[in-house]
Amino acid sequence: MNIAILNTGCANLTSIQVAIKKLGYTSIVTSDPSIILKSKKIFLPGVGTASAAMKKLNEKNLINTLKTLTQPILGICLGMQIFSQFSEECQGVKTIGIFDDCFTCLLKSSNLPLPHMGWNYIVFDNSHPLFKNIDKKERFYFVHSYIIPLNKYTLATTTYGISFSSVMQKNNFFGVQFHPEKSGHAGSQLLKNFLEM
């Protein structure tokens, strides 16, 4: 199976590639649209700011490629957030626009420290194939200061002062706010589920 990890220039590309390899799959880190379009599964990781990620995607002419994908793609952390319409970060950044919502700073709704960093629960319906063989008592690893509010595409929620979308899906576009590649057995199972869906 052809698996592509989009090269967004962020720091966690290798950790995702290693996590995929541990599941018995081979992936390629690429920004080549022809390779991405032929891939069966795609990962869009992200660490950093929405403006930097969007700049990189624009430089590599990947925005339209992403919008036209029909195969499953998983946005991780910032990767999920740039599937939204708009980010309030850095005086506002227009993002890809797959999901209808904008992502906002957690600070507006919580007096807790930012970023939200560490292990937290997700609340989900385990009938969805993405959550197959994942116990509801499992926790996942988060590092973020921005959130997408609960909406019609929300598959799982997490609470940190307020509840926000921690997993989303619109058609073939999936997003997770946490880092499955850093979330131990539960994160590995979620990656396996995505690859085998």
Rank of each mutant, 00 (worst) to 15 (best):
M1Y: 10
N2I: 12
N2S: 14
I3S: 00
A4M: 04
I5L: 01
L6M: 04
C10W: 00
C10N: 06
C10V: 10
L13C: 14
L13I: 15
S15D: 14
A19G: 13
K21W: 08
K22V: 12
K22A: 14
Y25F: 15
Y25K: 14
S27E: 08
S31K: 15
D32P: 12
K41V: 05
F43C: 03
P45F: 02
V47K: 03
V47S: 02
V47N: 01
T49R: 07
T49K: 07
A50G: 07
A50F: 00
S51H: 08
S51M: 02
A52E: 10
A52F: 02
K56N: 14
K56Y: 08
L57E: 05
E59F: 06
E59H: 11
K60E: 14
L62D: 04
T65D: 04
L66H: 04
T68G: 09
G75Y: 03
C77N: 05
G79N: 03
M80W: 02
M80Y: 02
I82A: 04
F83R: 03
S84I: 00
S84A: 13
Q85K: 14
Q85D: 11
Q85R: 12
E88N: 07
K94P: 05
G97E: 05
D101A: 02
D101Y: 00
F103R: 02
L106Q: 03
S109I: 15
L112R: 14
P113V: 12
P113I: 10
P113Y: 05
H116V: 06
G118Y: 09
W119E: 12
V123E: 12
S127V: 12
K132C: 09
N133F: 04
N133P: 05
D135M: 02
D135R: 04
K137Q: 11
E138S: 14
E138H: 09
R139S: 13
I147F: 03
P149L: 07
N151Y: 01
K152E: 13
L155M: 09
A156C: 10
T157W: 00
T159M: 08
G161D: 09
I162Q: 10
F164M: 06
S166I: 10
V167Y: 00
M168P: 01
Q169N: 14
N171K: 15
N171P: 11
N172E: 12
N172Q: 15
F173A: 12
F173Y: 15
F173I: 15
G175A: 10
F178H: 10
K182E: 05
S183R: 12
L190D: 08
L191R: 08
K192W: 02
K192F: 06
N193K: 11
N193D: 10
M197V: 13
